[in-house]
Computed example of a mutant assay.
Amino acid sequence: MLTKSVLTVAETTQILDAARAEAEKNQWAVTIAVTDDGGHLLSLLRLDGCAPVGAYIATEKARTAALGRRESKVYEDMINGGRTAFLSAPLQGTLEGGVPVIVGGQVVGAVGVSGVKADQDAQIAKAGATALNG
C-alpha cells in the first residue's frame, strides 16, 4: 500500500498566508482558494474589494489544477490554441490562476486565485503553492 502526504490546517494556512501576502503587497483585491488533491475546498479567503464571483472562480481554478495535476493555464492555452473540443471536459476553471501544490513530487492540493489580471492571479497562486517548499 502507498502512503501520501496530505494538507493539514497548518499547511493550508501557510499557503493561504503566502498568497495573501503577495496579493496585499501588490494591493490586489482577490479571492484565494486552497483545495486538496481531489479538488475539495479546504480554505477560502475573499479580500476586501473583491467581487463575490471571485469565490466561485478561484475555487474552480484550484479544482482544475488539483484534478489535472497542472496549472489551469495549460487548459486555457489548449482551448485558445484551437482544441475547442476540450470545452466538453468536466472542468469549469480552465482559466489562468490555478496552480498545483507539489510536495515530494506529488500533487497534494492546489491554489486558485481570481480578481485581477490572469498573470497576476497566477503570480499570487504560485506564491501560495510554493510556500511549503522553502
Rank of each mutant, 00 (worst) to 15 (best):
R70C: 15
G128D: 03
T8S: 14
V108P: 13
V108K: 10
D36I: 04
G54R: 01
L16V: 05
V108S: 13
I15W: 01
A118R: 06
V113W: 01
I15G: 05
V107H: 09
A110R: 00
H40R: 15
Q27M: 15
T13N: 08
G134N: 15
A21M: 09
G104I: 08
I102E: 15
V9T: 09
A85P: 05
R69E: 15
K73D: 09
V111C: 01
V113Q: 00
V111D: 01
D121I: 08
K4E: 05
T13W: 04
I32D: 00
A89D: 05
F86V: 08
K126Q: 09
E11H: 03
V34T: 13
V108R: 08
A58E: 03
L44T: 09
D119M: 03
A23P: 07
Q92R: 14
D17T: 08
T31Q: 00
N133F: 10
I32P: 00
Y75E: 01
A65Y: 06
A10W: 01
V9G: 06
R83W: 12
A110E: 03
G49H: 02
T59F: 08
A89W: 12
D48E: 09
E71F: 07
A131M: 08
A122T: 14
A62G: 11
G68R: 15
G38P: 02
V107G: 08
D119G: 00
E24F: 03
N133P: 11
Q92Y: 11
E22K: 12
L132Y: 02
P52K: 06
V103W: 12
D36P: 01
D119I: 01
S114E: 01
G54D: 06
A10E: 07
G112S: 01
L45E: 10
L47P: 05
S5Y: 10
V34K: 15
R70Q: 15
G115Y: 00
N80V: 06
V30W: 00
G93M: 09
L95I: 13
D77S: 12
A21I: 06
K73R: 14
A122F: 07
R83C: 11
T31N: 02
Q123P: 12
A62S: 14
L2Y: 06
R70D: 13
Q27R: 15
A85C: 06
Y56A: 08
I102D: 10
A19H: 06
N26R: 14
I79P: 10
V111Q: 02
D48V: 04
L45I: 06
K73F: 11
T130S: 13
T35W: 04
V111M: 01
G104N: 05
G38F: 07
A62F: 07
L42V: 03
A122Q: 11
